[in-house]
Design a protein around this nucleic acid. Sequence first.
DNA 1: CGGAGATATTGATCGAGGTCAAAAAACTTC
DNA 2: GAAGTTTTTTGACCTCGATCAATATCTCCG
Lengths: 254, 254
Amino acid sequence: MTERNVISLDKIKVACRDCSLSALCLPMGLRPEDVDRLDAIVKRNRPLQRGDNLFRAGEPFRHLFVVKTGAVKTFTQTNDGDEQVVGFHLPGEVLGLDAIQDGLHGCSARALETTAICELPFERLEDLSSNIPSLQHQMFRLLSKEISHDAEMMALLGRSTAEERVASFLISLSERFKRRGFSATDFFLSMSRQEIGSYLGLALETVSRLFTRFQDDKILKVERKHVQIIDMERLRAMVTHQTDAERHRANPST
Amino acid sequence: MTERNVISLDKIKVACRDCSLSALCLPMGLRPEDVDRLDAIVKRNRPLQRGDNLFRAGEPFRHLFVVKTGAVKTFTQTNDGDEQVVGFHLPGEVLGLDAIQDGLHGCSARALETTAICELPFERLEDLSSNIPSLQHQMFRLLSKEISHDAEMMALLGRSTAEERVASFLISLSERFKRRGFSATDFFLSMSRQEIGSYLGLALETVSRLFTRFQDDKILKVERKHVQIIDMERLRAMVTHQTDAERHRANPST
DNA sequence: CGGAGATATTGATCGAGGTCAAAAAACTTC
DNA sequence: GAAGTTTTTTGACCTCGATCAATATCTCCG
């Protein structure tokens, strides 16, 4: 199960022991020789604390952000005041891609826990990518990946039952943790039931009930925010909607 | 209410009376001097008939597609066999952006009516955009626009009532028609109730009921697939979730 | 430590919208 | 234009999950 989007991951890991750069390399899949040039433009910020905003909807867009450690949620406000979570961003993942189009952030981003972030000045990234074809290519891939992820999410929200949504959510987290070298079956949820519910289009009570039901069914072990996946097979079996792309990725021989 | 993404639209319209190229210019917002270079790589296909596939999920990705006339739906299959619509694509809109990441189409695309399409060989587009910074910039914008559209859609599917979803859908169609120079208040739906329902995460019966209710309330005039929006204000009032970006676009002075 | 304010669980109730069913309207094809 | 197919409308019923409410647990801080 190698990460398709990463070119010679081992070399990169060696080339940039600084975790901020490996956080960059992972999503971008850069070649080592390109990393040095990227390195020059990366800003490193002090960590955000839980509740700190990284940016707010409507603010001008200057930087792409890469999560180094911690977790971030992105959300919009509804007219009647409360917030709607549109994404969770784990280490190695990129934020701000929706803001390129018109130079304004379309959603707000807030740290869910103590979080370290890399800033990439977008203008300079654009300049660089004109000169480094592989960087341009990776930028296109990055944006495209976000689009297919969103399409999967839309498909999930469009049809599924609560059970299926929560199962999908856990599987998605599991795969994302695995990809970054964390445990795929034993992890902490840095977001509240409320936030999970908002993201999945469910009431927080429904999320809670499903967690306990999954626990009763010996599929999970849940203790507050600590989740262990006991029976991944049955969790996967709950998800009816697997895109052809996913099928292909799971079994590339087909 | 000028289209922010288009640079000197009038000039482009004059420069390329061939509708295929204006279809390209609109989403990309290219400068006239770039159009000639694009022109060279555009393939023009014979029209698709209703039901024809443009591509299927899992097929290798070679081209971006731009709808010239007609309409296309994109959809995925669920494991239990039936299809899930993930998007509708009207004249001037681009398809295939989700496939850049891994070179495989993640969904299938099928014509909803007689449809003319432009093909853009993606490799050559990538090459060109290395040499034309403004093209690279527009490509980024195009991808980013898709991402923010998807985020809005996710927000819609995540929270809204059936009423709000159908209202949003009609408003979205209206704005997209308007942008391309068609009537914003009087148009045909080339998709079935079934397909609308699938897209909005609703049963087809629910869509039908809402259409008749809107008609009874003097908000719409619906006759089969022909829709007239009578009271846009009340339609808009139904939508609680307006992103800050949308608010800003509607009233840029803020 | 103990009290205050989040956050999570669990129960009870209710309604929006899904499902099933049947009829009506529109489109096809010969 | 008749017969068959597909799409849409409308009605009746029921279920899943939202909402309301009460309690339990955690976390933070003086």
